[in-house]
């Protein structure tokens, strides 16, 4: 069994309880305008450039059949994205790893080897393995195999998902998943379609089914100024949470602009207007306080927003 991943990040501490290793699976059916992991969108490996690492040796120029590579005035490589096909010919000759294919095919064992290296840290902190992406359920069989392997090794498992998947896929990984970090991006169906490129109806239906099936679910809501950071959306979060009594809670994730610089590395245009800034601490506190007043159980809320902070 193989699948396509683009990163394995050890000492992840924001994607579930304790110290975790997060495995990022490639491919995503959504096109969120605020995407912070753009390298996870496409299912195929993509060429990424980190100019700072380039030593100006020109080896890649010779390797490129498309004539898509050149050195700029600072003797750093630049990619002509119009010509580049992400064929993968240049990274093997790039010794300083300025050019890299983001995304690689890996077996379950290849993924699990580094994951298991931190087993003692998971044990001591109540942590484990988290699958993220992209959308892990874009590769349902591979995701399922990883979760089974982690479970067999006695690890706590978490899956970060948009919920946009076949119910059968979700249902299949459910028994091997200790915690779902389930995204709730926009309440208004039209806006959801506009912001993410997909409808929210199937996502909500899957959420209800998953809840009914007894899964442990934490609802995670990205809060994006000028997009979904509105009272109506907060009301929608509160309403949905109210309908799901066994929900662990709701966590608000404040937007950060890191994704924009990453987009540039992959030659994508930035889709977020420059005017959209990371919200300040006061705004985040207010959103949390608003939900708390509506009786929503909040997770990882900033100090002062709610009297008592729950943990997953």
């Amino acid at each position: 069994m193989t699948g396509r991943i683009f990163d394995i990040q050890r000492f992840s501490i924001h994607d579930g309880p304790g110290i975790r290793t997060t495995v990022f699976l490639k491919g995503c059916p959504l096109r969120c305008k605020w995407c912070h992991n753009p390298e996870g969108i496409g299912p195929e490996p993509q060429l990424s450039v980190m100019a700072a690492k380039c030593v100006g040796c020109k080896a890649c120029l010779a390797a490129c059949k498309e004539g898509a590579l050149a050195l700029n005035g600072s003797q750093k490589v630049v990619i002509d994205r119009a010509r580049c096909t992400s064929c993968g010919d240049c990274p093997p000759v790039c010794d300083p790893k300025a050019l890299e294919m983001v995304g690689r095919t890996a077996t379950v064992d290849e993924v699990m080897a580094p994951v298991l290296r931190d087993r003692e840290y998971y044990r001591a902190s109540g942590g484990g393995m988290t699958l993220s992406g992209g959308e892990p359920l874009f590769q349902p069989a591979f995701a399922g195999a990883l979760l089974k392997a982690a479970r067999a090794a006695g690890l706590h498992t978490a899956v970060e998902t948009s919920g946009f998947a076949e119910w059968a896929a979700l249902d299949q990984i459910r028994p091997d998943t200790d915690l779902f970090l389930y995204d709730y991006k926009e309440t208004d169906p039209h806006l959801h379609q506009a912001f993410t490129g997909q409808p929210n109806a199937p996502i909500l239906e899957n959420l209800r089914k998953l809840h009914a099936a007894g899964a442990r679910i934490l609802l995670r809501c990205p809060m994006i100024p000028e997009f979904n950071a509105r009272k109506e959306h907060l009301d929608g979060i509160a309403r949905t949470a109210g309908e799901l009594p066994r929900l662990i809670g709701v966590e608000l994730l404040a937007y950060h602009r890191l994704g924009s610089s990453k987009l540039r590395r992959f030659g994508f245009p930035t889709r977020m207007p420059e005017s959209v800034k990371s919200p300040d601490a006061e705004a985040v506190r207010e959103w949390n306080a608003y939900l708390a007043r509506k009786g929503v159980r909040l997770v990882n809320a900033p100090p002062g927003a709610v009297s008592k902070v729950a943990g997953p």
Binding site: F11, I13, G18, I19, E120, Y121, R123, A124, S125, G126, G127, N300, G311
Partner: peptide, 17 residues
Amino acid sequence: QGNRDKVRAMLNVYFNQ
């Protein structure tokens, strides 16, 4: 505090190893 608990768990592992 939440992060510190995780760091402390990590250091306990390091020293135990």
